[in-house]
């Protein structure tokens, strides 16, 4: 498979990326891990005029806990580095658990979390995790200060808002957590995945597997299995995906969310 022709630039700092990116648009593509983008190029699903390689920008791969206690993951931090990072495993274990279900070890060592979330394909597990943990995206554009875009907005934008230099997760919630998914085979894109984090105000729930991940606010207040099923039906009303599995997903959602809640509560005990 051969990508369509494009020009290639490899800036050495963020300012260089912003200058090349300009107003963005589909003619510009940012190349981080490339595990989604290079395939899209090879299939000619994307045909940019310019590919901007950010892999050699020093410091962009940092995984840090900032002064406010937030976990900040840079644009070129690899999925596997995030998954095994001690701060992630102790403070944000839901991220580590879900990452274990993303792709295979070789692809995880190359692909990035910011790229995975910017691509946000159907069945993107981490999109559900970002919604549950209320992540925000640090977006830089030429001539303006960096902005922080909440997941609920970012994940609907298609990743064309500017240069996403990091994803930022608020300080940890000490409650139980779980990511439970159904997929056709291990480490394949999930048919449906349920992310649950217990917090002081009760469970926070999101589902991956639809066109984009969905926060399930009604289900968060359900107290019985019957109520959960009805609440999820409300949460998922109008949710569509790229294929014909929707009816099946609606049936399975209640099972997965129920399982994830049970696991999360067992871990909280």
């Amino acid at each position: 498979m051969k990508p369509a022709p494009f020009a290639y630039e490899r800036p050495s700092d963020v300012a260089g990326v912003l200058a090349l990116l300009g107003d963005g648009g589909p003619q510009k593509a940012i190349l981080a891990g490339g595990q989604s983008l290079v395939l899209a190029l090879a299939r000619r699903a994307r045909t940019p005029e310019l590919v901007i390689d950010i892999n050699r920008i020093a410091g962009l791969d940092a995984i840090t806990v900032d002064g406010e206690g937030c976990l900040v993951i840079g644009a070129t931090a690899r999925l596997e580095e995030v998954r095994v990072h001690p701060a992630v495993r102790s403070g944000w274990p839901l991220i580590a658990e879900a990452l274990g279900l993303v792709a295979n070890p070789v692809v995880r060592r190359r692909g990035t979390l910011v790229g995975n979330l910017s691509n946000n394909g159907p069945g993107c597990e981490m999109a559900a995790v970002a919604l549950v943990l209320d992540a925000e995206f640090v977006v830089e554009r030429l001539g303006s200060d960096p902005s922080r875009v909440p997941s609920a907005i970012f994940l609907t934008l298609g990743g064309t808002v500017g240069f996403v230099t990091a994803v930022r997760f608020p300080p940890p919630s000490p409650g139980g957590f779980a990511f439970v998914e159904l997929s056709r085979r291990p480490q394949h894109v999930c048919t449906l995945g349920a992310a649950v984090q217990l917090g002081p105000a009760g469970p926070v729930i999101a589902l991956a597997g639809f066109a984009t991940a969905i926060r399930c606010t009604a289900a968060e207040h359900a107290s019985t299995p019957e109520a959960l099923r009805a609440a999820l039906a409300a949460d998922l009303a109008g949710a569509g995906s790229a294929d014909t599995l929707d009816e099946y997903r609606h049936d399975v959602a209640a099972v997965l969310v129920g399982d994830a809640l049970a696991v999360a509560r067992s871990r909280a005990a």
Binding site: Y8, G34, Q35, A42, D53, R109, R110
Partner: peptide, 24 residues
């Protein structure tokens, strides 16, 4: 397309899919 793993090579000591990287 990155699924089968047959094209895996070591780049600077890390396994990569050579079909999911540009030569540059």
């Amino acid at each position: 397309e990155g699924t089968c793993g047959a094209c895996t090579v070591a780049l600077d000591g890390i396994a990569v899919r050579s079909c999911l990287m540009l030569a540059v």
